[in-house]
Design a protein around this nucleic acid. Structure first.
Length: 247
DNA sequence: CATCATGTTATAAT
DNA sequence: CATTATAACATGAT
């Protein structure tokens, strides 16, 4: 099968392994077989035979690859899991990502308690309406970054959703009528879905008609009205929006 | 050299 | 307790 863990390589054992029992990981994983890979937003859970679980969060600059053997660890590779034909490599220069290890018959409790992903059918317009009622004072763009509600939505996706819905990032939840809430819900699902099929799949760009390709570009013009985009810090993150299109 | 970055999250304050 | 605000993490690109 070639799914047996032959050997593990751990580097820089501190930062990305915060909260991880490194000794248990090194001891427990070798000789098990990879059974299944689960994903949720930027998190992944690898299931191994015998009740061993490896959890990853990609953070901002984390990536997982499966190069052919023999593979030699490169700079910023924190974890290399050697199988027979391939290696599984977690690389993360900025180390905002994380690795943890669990043992148990079932997936770890926190994994089973994760909120629905924004593109999931369980994330309904009614769910969103409830969230907006509970969080009246948080600007909508900032709210979209709350991982307890929108797991996996990060800064550019939040700006993208606001731009597509033609809402200013600073807009407060209470000011939306029912129709706008439905529109926001549609766009949350659409942006999450399309992003997974493009950026998430192979780092290809989403459609050129999106804000995505323009928000960091020199001259930064809105792809819809061609006016100048605005950029400003909002609650500690740079928000990018079109002052002409968004209200 | 200074600034900024495709992200969360721990902790403090209200 | 629930919600809101702020600082922090480490490295690379410009």
């Amino acid at each position: 099968m070639g799914k047996t863990v032959l050997h593990l390589e751990l580097h820089s054992k501190t930062r990305v392994f915060r909260g991880c029992d490194v000794a248990a990981l090194e001891d427990g994983l070798p000789r098990t077989k990879l059974r299944k890979i689960h994903t949720h937003g930027k998190q992944m859970l690898f299931e191994f035979t015998g009740g061993h679980w490896l959890w990853l969060h990609l953070g901002m600059t984390g990536s997982l690859s499966a190069p052919a053997q023999p593979y030699e660890a490169a700079k910023h590779d924190h974890l290399v899991l050697h199988l027979r034909d391939t290696a599984l490599v977690f690389k993360d220069p900025r180390q905002f990502g994380a690795v943890r290890y669990y043992e148990g018959k079932e997936p770890p409790g926190f994994w089973q308690a994760l909120p629905p992903e924004p593109q999931d059918k369980d994330f309904t317009a009614a769910t969103l309406k409830g969230v907006l009622a509970r969080r009246p004072k948080t600007p909508l763009k900032t709210l979209l970054l709350d991982q307890a509600i929108f797991p996996g939505i990060g800064n550019w996706m939040a700006d993208e959703i606001m731009w597509q819905t033609k809402l200013l990032p600073q807009r407060l939840p209470a000011t939306l009528d029912a129709a706008k809430i439905r529109e926001l819900h549609r766009n949350v699902q659409k942006v999450a879905k399309v992003s997974l099929e493009t950026v998430g799949k192979d780092w290809s760009d989403p459609p050129k008609s999106w804000l995505f390709s323009h928000r960091w570009a020199k001259g930064h013009a809105c792809p819809r009205c061609h006016g100048a985009l605005a950029r400003e810090d909002l609650r500690g993150r740079t928000a990018c929006w079109c002052p002409h299109c968004q209200h």
